[in-house]
Design a protein around this nucleic acid. Structure first.
Length: 151
DNA sequence: GCCAACGTTGGC
DNA sequence: GCCAACGTTGGC
């Protein structure tokens, strides 16, 4: 089993939006970065643990715990000409983008980016490294356990 | 809104 | 294959 941090803009899908979904589960659509796609396509397994992170918002930070609930499958939005994530180079026969489904485990207190940054045990997390922009990053089990312990 | 950092695109 | 131009991310 692996551990991941997945960023979502709360104006798009927040932890409360996730909680309100049928099954409290959502397709992680819209990933248009190959590294992040490859993590979902090649490495994620059902049951993998996910830190649900709010990005591009007033209070960036970890907002809840989730887990992978469905293996990667083609991202529907790439085929929808009216969608902002439409990709003209993707076809049903040769889809370019994939997504897993992610299901809520529980909403937590917000662990703010600042708190993460101020925690020596978490200094090696990828979201803290300069210039990191990846929206999906692997998390060390020790880091994951530390975070769950303080939430 | 700014801007640093990085990924992608496309002409050559 | 190089690399300049461009687009995006995401904290501030």
């Amino acid at each position: 089993m692996r551990y991941w941090l997945m960023k979502s803009e709360p104006s798009d899908v927040s932890i409360d939006d996730l909680a309100a979904m049928p099954d409290q589960s959502v397709a992680w659509y819209g990933i248009r970065n190959y590294q992040a796609r490859n993590f979902m396509r090649d490495q994620m397994q059902v049951g993998d643990k996910v830190l649900f992170y709010h990005s591009s918002c007033a209070e960036p930070g970890i907002a809840g715990l989730a887990e992978v609930s469905r293996l990667a499958y083609p991202d529907e939005t790439q085929f929808d000409v009216k969608h902002k994530y439409f990709d003209a180079k993707a076809t049903r026969e040769a889809p370019r983008w994939m997504n897993v489904d992610v299901k809520l485990v529980r909403k937590t207190r917000l662990m703010a980016l600042k708190e993460i940054r101020d925690t020596p045990e978490l200094a090696t997390m990828r979201i803290l490294q300069k210039g990191n922009r990846l929206s999906i990053t692997p998390i060390d089990p020790r880091e994951y356990n530390y975070i769950v312990g303080v939430l």
